[in-house]
């Protein structure tokens, strides 16, 4: 499934949730499905430090596709991190670099990806794209 299709599905899922509490409860559940970073990789180099919550992100390159793993100490943050991974995971660096993420706005969680929130998610997204750039550069130089 393309990155766009992944986002369409999420938008559809959230359209069934009217109340903020349902959305948060869903994010709490989504957090439990996150491809969890190996405990050994939950280290300083992989830590994205927000002032409010912390996110750990790791990526690997398998058969031309990037695989992400993450974790967060805050549960809502973890749920949104899980969504970001669900959208971008298992795609080529090129696709990830060109991806336009519209789903955050569409599901009404934009405030969670604002730089002033300082929950680590903005930096996480940036880091996901940086991994894509790094893997792309590496691939091209081989």
């Amino acid at each position: 499934m393309s990155i766009k299709e992944n986002q369409d599905i999420i938008v559809e899922e959230f359209s069934l949730l009217d109340e903020w509490m349902d959305k948060y409860n869903y994010l709490i559940d989504l957090g439990k499905t996150i491809p969890l970073i190996d405990p050994a990789n939950r280290k300083e180099e992989n830590l994205i430090r927000g002032c409010q919550s912390r996110v750990w992100l790791d990526a690997s390159f398998e058969q031309g596709q990037i695989r992400y793993k993450a974790d967060s100490d805050a549960i809502i943050t973890k749920g949104i991190a899980a969504l970001l991974i669900r959208v971008l995971d298992d795609h080529s660096p090129e696709e990830i670099l060109q991806a336009e993420l519209f789903f955050i706005d569409a599901i009404g969680l934009r405030e969670h990806l604002s730089p002033t929130r300082s929950n680590g998610l903005v930096s996480m997204l940036k880091q996901m794209k940086l991994y894509a750039l790094a893997f792309k550069t590496k691939e091209e130089s081989q």
Partner: peptide, 12 residues
Amino acid sequence: IHPYDAGLVLDK
């Protein structure tokens, strides 16, 4: 419970 999670719910 992470303070950030608590803060988000209290805000709502």
